[in-house]
Design a protein around this nucleic acid. Structure first.
Lengths: 238, 238
DNA sequence: TGTACATCAGTGAACGCGCGTTCACTGATGTAC
DNA sequence: TGTACATCAGTGAACGCGCGTTCACTGATGTAC
């Protein structure tokens, strides 16, 4: 019985699947996410295109795998950044995570574009597969939010004191079941907006719309990260 | 001499060029900006592909024309929205313009994506041609900012009181020569950030990352527009 | 330990498709005298 | 007003390319007795 422990062939399969994804990522980095081509990947691996069908049933499923991987990579990076800062320094954790977020996006533009850029024409991601990956990617940020709230370190910007009720209801569902200390709507709202703000700026920077205006995108971004600390009411780091 | 006044053939030329662009826009709306194809456009017009070379020397030049048009369309929409509100009501103008901005993006996702989405692989926009169009698209917003400042209606959020010097220098160059009443750095900074914020949210919404979280993107956006009024220190509309 | 058999990775040819661009051409439209 | 000529829009065939996917196949790897 070839049960939980992997058989030799199984290991090789997985290894090749990983190599395919690695080559695909390299190729996306060069040509952009939408230029992904099975033939080119196979060529670079010294294989013929049909061989790839042993590993992925279609181009779309390969794309899905790359998307899932990208979300997980982002989540790992955020978690890693959080780990470099002592647990009590919530503001410093936020700063570290959001800088890691941007750094990852700049270092892996194709993967970032794959998950947050223009959807690839003709491809539609199966949400059942994608959804857990999305959640995982943002889990470290939500965990920080919940921890900081529980520690009494969050005082949402007054502008978010009373969001209209329909928004309030939805934000309540953001945190997984028992994830946090009943984080209130305003904190979730302002947290989501802070993420959207920085995420939006990163997209704009990546597509060339920030640098021409501000000159130094890194400095601009760092400033905005600190502004988000104010919005969250997290004391800025010393 | 076929001087400034157009010859008959010239008029027909321009008419056909416009039709090509219109068909291209329809096609982008269906298949996405990167699926733009000369053969498909020609087909839909009842022509063969080589015929298009009478009107555009290459696919890339057609794309450039579409980009320039999109920026101008956006600028026109903003200016139009501004015109629907009395000149003294700066806050109301801002609200009207930013809602028109989003409405245009949602109504013309392909054109919006063309100018603010993932760059089309293999295409690089000639900045000399593109740059004036970009400026034109944002001119109405900058004009509003300058007018509101001159009227003493702007009090930038304290967070933007003292941006780091390198940013300050750059923002000074945003306004064209004699455009405004010496709008100070802080106002330009907060204005640019307000634009980036809303622009980023629109991109996120368009690519499907807002609705799943907030339920009602329109409500969410309207809330954020009003928050930007606070950041600008523009009294919110009654 | 050795043999017979099943599994499976990878090949090579082919299908049918679409792409941008070039070229020599036809036939209609406009111009000059 | 009529004729000769130049201009130019559009055609059809072709070039060379790349794509995802299918199919019957070969040959190596692993398995069972």
């Amino acid at each position: 019985m070839n049960g939980a422990v992997q058989t030799r062939r199984g290991r090789l399969q997985e290894q090749t699947r990983d190599e395919i994804k690695a080559v695909a990522r390299r190729q996306m980095a060069r040509e952009g996410a939408s230029a992904l081509s099975l033939r080119a990947i196979a060529g670079e691996m010294g294989l013929t295109a049909p061989a790839l069908y042993r590993y992925y049933p279609s181009r779309d499923e390969l794309i899905t795998a790359l998307i899932v991987d990208a979300f997980h990579a982002l989540g790992d990076v955020l978690e890693g950044a959080r780990g470099t800062v002592v647990a009590e320094a919530h503001a410093n954790q936020f700063v570290a995570m959001m800088h890691a977020y941007r750094a990852w996006a700049l270092a892996h533009p194709a993967e970032f574009t794959l998950i947050y850029g223009t959807p690839i024409p003709g491809y539609h991601a199966p949400e059942v597969v994608t959804d857990p990956a999305v959640r995982r990617s943002l889990a470290p940020l939500l965990a920080l939010l919940a921890a900081a709230w529980q520690a009494g370190k969050i005082t949402p910007d007054p502008a978010y004191a009373a969001p209209p009720p329909p928004l309030g209801e939805r934000f309540g569902a953001m945190l997984p079941g028992a994830a946090g200390g009943r984080v209130p709507t305003a904190a979730l709202h302002v947290g989501f907006v802070a993420w959207a703000h920085l995420q939006g700026i990163i997209m704009l920077e990546l597509f060339g719309h920030i640098a021409p205006v501000v000159g130094d995108p890194e400095l601009f971004y760092a400033f905005e990260v600190r502004v988000q600390l104010l919005r969250l009411g997290l004391a800025p780091p010393g």
